[in-house]
Computed example of a mutant assay.
Amino acid sequence: MRVKKMPALALIVAAAGLSLTACGSGDGSSASANTSASTTASGSSTGGGSSTGGQGSTSGSSSSGSSGPSGSSKGSELSAKTQTSTSSSMCKTDHLAFSASASGTKNEIVVNLKNTGSGKCSMHGFPGVQLVGPDGLGDTGPDAARTDASASTVTIGPGEETRFLVRYIPDTSGSGKKYTRLSVTPPNEKVSEIVNLNGLAFTIAASSGNAPDVYVDPVGYHVGSGK
């Protein structure tokens, strides 16, 4: 088989064509790369729009954040002022009026505590209750025992009342002691007040050193509510 030889001139032209093609291909890749880079940059710039939104969010957050603590501070100040203006102190014996009334249940007495002060006051827990006979403070009986009822904090405004229950087991032997008054000490107080029972005086068995036959509930009983 014969091999046909290509003239030297033709070889030179072909080589030149290949070189041009290679250059064109390189330019195309470069252009493509440039275009891609441009597109990426543009996309990133658009993402920068998101970043602007982020800055807006940051700005908003910053603005909100800066006004937030300030607002929070103002809110705290207002809250503190409100708490100060509405806060209540412990009820004092000197600012309470005491009275006794029937509860509507046999062998129970309601002791009412009315706030006679100019501001709110609070009580929590059991009052101290000692029985007093008809002969006055020298004629005292046992202290009332506490029931197992749960205590809650009670707040009363000026002119408002709260109350507690006193329960007793009446004497049936005929040799018991009659008590016509109660010496009442509000929860967390040391000063007591005498409460006249009037027609609610009761007779219980003489104390034998065991638990007395009189029991007291914590402050907070409301007539008609059962608690």
Rank of each mutant, 00 (worst) to 15 (best):
T52K: 01
T39V: 08
S50H: 01
Q55A: 15
S44G: 11
Q55N: 11
S30Q: 10
A33W: 06
T35E: 08
A37S: 07
C23P: 02
S42L: 09
T21K: 05
G43N: 12
T40C: 02
D27C: 13
G47D: 04
T21C: 13
A37E: 02
G54Q: 07
A41T: 07
S36V: 07
T46M: 04
A31W: 13
G28M: 09
C23A: 14
T35L: 14
T52G: 02
G47R: 07
G28F: 14
G43A: 11
G26W: 10
S29F: 13
G48L: 08
G54C: 00
S30W: 13
C23K: 12
G49R: 01
L20I: 15
G49I: 01
G49S: 08
G24V: 13
N34W: 12
G56Q: 03
C23Y: 15
T46A: 10
S51L: 09
G48P: 00
S19F: 14
G24M: 14
G53E: 08
G56Y: 01
T21W: 11
S29P: 04
G43K: 09
L20F: 09
S30Y: 14
G43S: 14
T21L: 15
N34G: 06
S32L: 13
A41V: 10
S45N: 02
G49H: 00
A37R: 00
S38A: 09
N34M: 14
D27A: 12
G53C: 01
G53T: 07
L20M: 13
G26D: 12
T40A: 15
S50P: 00
S45T: 03
S32G: 09
C23S: 12
S36C: 07
S25D: 05
G54Y: 08
A31D: 07
S19W: 12
G49C: 00
A22Y: 08
T39I: 06
D27V: 15
